[in-house]
C-alpha cells in the first residue's frame, strides 16, 4: 500500500503520536533518563559517603579505575559465564520440556501446571529451600550420594560449582516462559505435516529436525533475544543462593555494582561500571543480531 498525503493519513499520524506519547514520555523519564543520569554520575567524584552530592567533574578517572581493577573484569567474566549457562539451559530445557508436554498423556494438564510452578515462585523463598536441598552434609540430595558411599558434590559451597549451579537454578526458575511460548507455537504447526511424516515413516528426531524446528524458528529466535536479555539479570538469584560466594566465585557484575554503590558508597565508580556493562551488553546483542541475520539468510 502506498502512503498518500491525504487528510485521513494526516489524522492517522496525529492519532499515532498521541497514542504513543504517554508510553514514550514515561519511558524517557523513567528508563532513558536514569541511563543518562548514570552516565553523568560516572564522570563525577562521588566515591565515598562524604561526597555523595559532590559535583566535581573528574573526567575519565572512574573509568580508568574500573578498567584497571581486577574485580571488574573477573565479575564481568562471571556475568557472561552465568549468561551463557542460563541461556543454553533455558533454550534447550524450555524446548525439550515443551516437546514432552505437547504429547498427549494421562494427567497432562496437571503436569503442565506443575512445570510452570517455578516461574511463579519467589526466588528468596525457593532459594532458602534449595540451599537446604543441596546442603552437602544435611540435604536430601547428598544423602542419596552417601547411600552409594560417595560424599557427593558441594554444590553452592564449591567454588567450581557455585556459579553454574546458580545459573542453572536461575534458568530452571525462568524456563516455563519458554515452555509456554513453544507449546503455543507448536499448536500452530499444521497437522497434515505430521501426517505426511507418518506416511514417510519419519522418526521422532527427524520430525523435530525437519518439521518442528523450521516451523517454530521465528518463535525460537524471539525467545533467544528475550532469554539473552534476561540472562544478565542475575542479581536476586545470586544473592539468594550464594551471595557471591564462596570466596567471590559467583560474584557477578551486578553484585559488584550493588556493593560498590550501596555498601561502599562509591556511586560514581558503580555508575561507571553500570555504563560499561550496558555498553558491553548492547554490543554483545548487536553481534548476536548479526549472527542471527547471517543464519536466517543462509
Amino acid at each position: 500500500m502506498k502512503t498518500k498525503l491525504t487528510k485521513s493519513n494526516l489524522r492517522d499520524a496525529r492519532t499515532g503520536y498521541i497514542f504513543i506519547l504517554p508510553f514514550v514520555v514515561l519511558f524517557a523519564v523513567f528508563k532513558v533518563y536514569p541511563l543518562i543520569y548514570g552516565f553523568a554520575v560516572s564522570f563525577l567524584g562521588r566515591n565515598s559517603i562524604r561526597t555523595v552530592s559532590d559535583t566535581t567533574f573528574v573526567g575519565l578517572e572512574n573509568y580508568v579505575k574500573v578498567l584497571q581493577s581486577n574485580s571488574f573484569w573477573t565479575s564481568l567474566e562471571k556475568s557472561f559465564q552465568y549468561a551463557l549457562i542460563y541461556t543454553v539451559v533455558v533454550m534447550v530445557g524450555g524446548f525439550l520440556t515443551a516437546m514432552l508436554l505437547n504429547r498427549k498423556f494421562r494427567g497432562r494438564t496437571f503436569v503442565r501446571t506443575m512445570a510452570y510452578l517455578p516461574y511463579v515462585t519467589n526466588v528468596i523463598a525457593i532459594g532458602i529451600v534449595l540451599k537446604y536441598l543441596f546442603n552437602p552434609t544435611k540435604g536430601p540430595i547428598n544423602a542419596i550420594f552417601r547411600a552409594f558411599g560417595e560424599a557427593g558434590p558441594k554444590w553452592f559451597s564449591s567454588p567450581d560449582l557455585a556459579l553454574p549451579m546458580t545459573a542453572i537454578i536461575g534458568a530452571w526458575l525462568a524456563m516455563a516462559f519458554n515452555t509456554i511460548t513453544i507449546l503455543a507455537a507448536l499448536q500452530d504447526i499444521p497437522n497434515d505435516l505430521f501426517e505426511v511424516a507418518d506416511i514417510e515413516g519419519a522418526s521422532g528426531l527427524q520430525r523435530i529436525r525437519y518439521i518442528v524446528l523450521p516451523m517454530i524458528s521465528s518463535a525460537l529466535f524471539m525467545l533467544l533475544t528475550i532469554t539473552v536479555i534476561n540472562s544478565f539479570k542475575s542479581y536476586t538469584t545470586v544473592v539468594s543462593l550464594t551471595n557471591g560466594g564462596p570466596a567471590s566465585s559467583s560474584r557477578v557484575l551486578s553484585l559488584q555494582i550493588y556493593e560498590d554503590a550501596f555498601t561502599y558508597m562509591k556511586f560514581s565508580i558503580a555508575a561507571a561500571e553500570g555504563t560499561l556493562f550496558t555498553l558491553i551488553i548492547i554490543a554483545f546483542n548487536k553481534i548476536l543480531d548479526k549472527v542471527r541475520a547471517v543464519w536466517e539468510n543462509r
Binding site: L35, I229, S254, I281, I282
Partner: peptide
Amino acid sequence: TMMVPGETTMVP
C-alpha cells in the same frame, strides 16, 4: 533499550 538490564541502572 530493552537490552539494558534494570540492575545496571539501580544506582542512577
